[in-house]
Simulated assay, not measured.
Amino acid sequence: MSIKVNKVLDAKGLACPMPVVKTKKTMDQIEPGEVLLVEATDRGSLADMKGWAKNTGHQYLGSKEEGDVLYHYLRKSDPSETSEIEEFPHVTSNEELINKLDDESITVLDVREPAEYVFSHVPGAVSIPLGDLEERMGEIDKESEIHVICRTGNRSNMAAQQLAENGFDKVFNVKPGMSQWDGPTENK
């Protein structure tokens, strides 16, 4: 079975958030119903593409992997089916989170891919990649103040929205995230 592709986007070698940024721009150039193939090497793009499509209303058809390249298939929806990704209203800065790290009543939720988490993360952070969040929400204490972090604030924005939609009411998106984190870190 083959999928008819209308446009191919080469996002190989780009890291989050660039594959999604380029996907959004390219999606604006194709017609509703057409299929975009995004070629990416960033492992995080798997969760990013699914999350972006879900949050905008475009259809995520699936992905396949060949060697180091991920091939993501997305179908452009009709404008009546789509929406812009809203900025999550509750944002906290890296500095504000650093000042709260000793508070045991907070949970730091890292939604990056496992390979990103292993090399450097906030001490005590819980690792649940964005793509796994829906199935693993039960692992997070709803009573806790949750600070969601990723590399740049984009995946954490999508994760924070998902948590809020599922009854978590003390959620904060940490921006700019690990790309500019100068607080304590650990690795596993």
Rank of each mutant, 00 (worst) to 15 (best):
S127A: 14
L109F: 09
Y117C: 06
G124E: 10
E135H: 11
V171T: 12
F119D: 14
R112M: 12
G138E: 14
S144M: 04
Y71V: 00
V108G: 05
D68W: 10
N154I: 02
M137W: 04
T82F: 13
D78P: 14
K76P: 00
L101K: 08
E81F: 14
R136P: 10
L163Q: 06
V171N: 01
K170P: 07
A115G: 14
H121Q: 13
F168E: 03
I146K: 01
G124W: 10
T107P: 09
T82G: 02
S144K: 10
A160E: 02
G67T: 02
E113C: 06
S93D: 08
S120A: 05
L74K: 01
S77P: 10
V108D: 01
A125N: 08
Y117N: 11
D141I: 08
H72C: 10
E96M: 13
I98M: 03
I128S: 06
E134V: 09
H147L: 12
E116C: 06
E139Q: 10
A160P: 08
E116R: 01
F119M: 13
G124D: 09
V108A: 12
E84I: 00
L109W: 07
K142W: 07
E66Q: 15
D169P: 15
L101E: 00
L101T: 02
L97S: 01
G124Q: 11
S127W: 14
D169R: 15
H121R: 07
I128N: 09
M158C: 05
V118P: 12
S144V: 04
R136S: 11
E139D: 11
H90W: 15
T92F: 02
F168A: 02
S83D: 05
S80C: 12
V126W: 01
F88S: 00
L130D: 01
N173R: 09
L109A: 07
L109R: 12
T107A: 09
D110N: 06
R136I: 14
L130M: 05
E145M: 05
L163N: 05
K170E: 11
R75S: 04
K175I: 09
D102C: 06
A164Y: 07
F172L: 09
